[in-house]
């Protein structure tokens, strides 16, 4: 019934760019569509670009974490890119640290992250 956010495919990567404030149902649809397409398009990576989002509440936050977890089960990686500083501060204050979600500053760095072998963090 409600609109769906388009999911683009570039090679083995699925790309979603969220351009406006989402209704809850659209958030759930996106989660469903992504899970489906990771399998049907044999994707190895997912990039969710939230540069345009001025608000990420716990509902959207939960969707991001769930998509990351689902993609891991399906042998793909999810990178959330472009989170604004104010949004990041608010999420931390809200108590949502999105453990298990890979992040990058922008689309380009997100794509680079997908190309790297699974992270071996230097200390």
């Amino acid at each position: 019934m409600s609109e769906r956010i388009p999911i683009l495919r570039i090679g083995e990567t699925l790309l979603v760019s969220v351009q406006f404030d989402l209704e809850d149902q659209m958030v759930l649809n996106l989660q469903e569509d992504l899970a489906e397409q990771i399998v049907s398009k044999a994707a190895r990576g997912v990039i969710i670009d939230i540069t345009a989002l001025e608000i990420v509440d716990s509902f959207v936050g939960r969707m991001l974490a769930t998509v990351a977890a689902i993609s891991r089960v399906l042998d793909a990686r999810t990178v959330v890119v472009g989170m604004r500083p104010a949004v990041a501060i608010t999420l931390v204050e809200l108590g949502l640290s999105l453990g298990g979600v890979d992040t990058a500053l922008d689309l380009e760095k997100g794509l680079a992250k997908l190309r790297q072998p699974t992270s071996s963090v230097l200390r």
Binding site: M83, P85, A88, V92, S97, T103, L105
Partner: peptide
């Protein structure tokens, strides 16, 4: 601590 977690959320 919160700064560091927020930076991580942004990908840094």
């Amino acid at each position: 601590l919160k700064t560091i977690v927020a930076a991580r959320l942004m990908g840094a």
